[in-house]
Simulated scan of single mutants.
Amino acid sequence: MPSSLATYIALPGNTAEAMEYWHSVFGGDLVILRYGDMQLEGMPFEPDPEAVAHATLTLPVGVIAGSDVMDTREYPIRDTAYSLLYTTETDAEAKRLYDALIAGGGTVGMPLEVAPWGDLYGQVFDRFGVMWSFSCEHSG
């Protein structure tokens, strides 16, 4: 297998919901492995069998992977530390994805508009607190 790089996001118990939602917005191939689907002998902790051990959403443009965090501390998700940049081929595609995340409970971080550098650019915090930036070489 060739080397690759994927985004990995650990969410506080709602990874399956987030991955299924992103799959509905972006398409691709989704695989979710829960701890209950695995052989757990020798695990150093007792995981919830419904918790996500590993999930991957494979898109034509890249891979998003993730899991549920295992400790009970509060994790602030809504932050730019959890952010993804999605570059599209057309303005229409950027707008469609941007609008879909807002319609699904997201909030505008930055309006989708022509930026000073000339590209169409905008940011949405989805309902899970993950920031999605959309960029497209503006077509006029």
Score class of each variant (00 low, 15 high):
S67D: 11
L30I: 03
G42K: 00
I9A: 04
P49L: 04
Y98L: 10
E46R: 12
G62E: 06
Y98D: 04
A81N: 12
L112H: 10
V130T: 04
L120C: 07
M19I: 03
Y121E: 11
R73V: 14
A94R: 01
D37A: 04
M131A: 14
S24M: 05
H23Q: 08
H138W: 03
D68S: 14
D119S: 11
G27E: 00
G66Q: 06
T87Q: 14
E89G: 15
P12H: 05
D48T: 11
Q123M: 15
L97P: 01
A65F: 01
A94E: 06
T72D: 15
D29K: 15
L5V: 08
R127I: 02
I102E: 07
A51S: 04
P47F: 06
P111Q: 05
T56E: 13
Y121F: 15
V69K: 11
H54L: 08
S3R: 13
S3L: 10
V114N: 15
E46A: 12
E20K: 06
L11R: 08
A100I: 08
D126M: 02
A55W: 04
Y21N: 14
A6C: 13
V69P: 14
D37P: 09
F134T: 02
F125E: 03
Y86T: 08
P49N: 00
G62A: 08
F26P: 01
T58S: 09
A16S: 11
M70T: 13
D71R: 00
N14E: 15
S135P: 10
V31I: 10
G62F: 00
V25P: 04
S133V: 11
L33F: 14
S67Y: 06
G122L: 04
A103D: 01
D48K: 03
F125G: 05
R127D: 01
P60Y: 04
A81V: 13
E113Y: 06
V108S: 05
Y98M: 03
G66M: 15
T7N: 12
M131D: 07
M19Y: 00
F26C: 04
G105R: 06
S67P: 11
M110Q: 10
I9L: 04
P47I: 07
W22G: 07
V31Q: 04
A18N: 10
Y75S: 07
E17Y: 02
T58H: 02
M131N: 09
T15Y: 08
H23M: 02
S24R: 02
L97T: 03
R34N: 09
G109P: 12
Q39R: 10
P2C: 12
G62V: 01
L40I: 14
E74N: 15
L5D: 00
T90I: 10
P49Y: 02
T90Y: 05
L59G: 15
L33S: 10
G105T: 03
L11D: 00
A92R: 15
I64Y: 00
G106A: 07
G27Q: 01
A100C: 09
G66P: 11
N14R: 13
D48Q: 05
A55C: 07
T15A: 12
P60W: 09
H23D: 14
V124M: 06
V108H: 03
I102F: 06
M19K: 06
D68T: 09
W132Y: 03
P12V: 04
S4D: 10
M38R: 05
W22F: 06
M43D: 09
N14L: 13
V63E: 07
D91V: 11
V25S: 08
P44M: 11
D91L: 11
I77P: 01
D29H: 12
W22L: 04
L112P: 00
A10V: 10
T88D: 07
N14S: 12
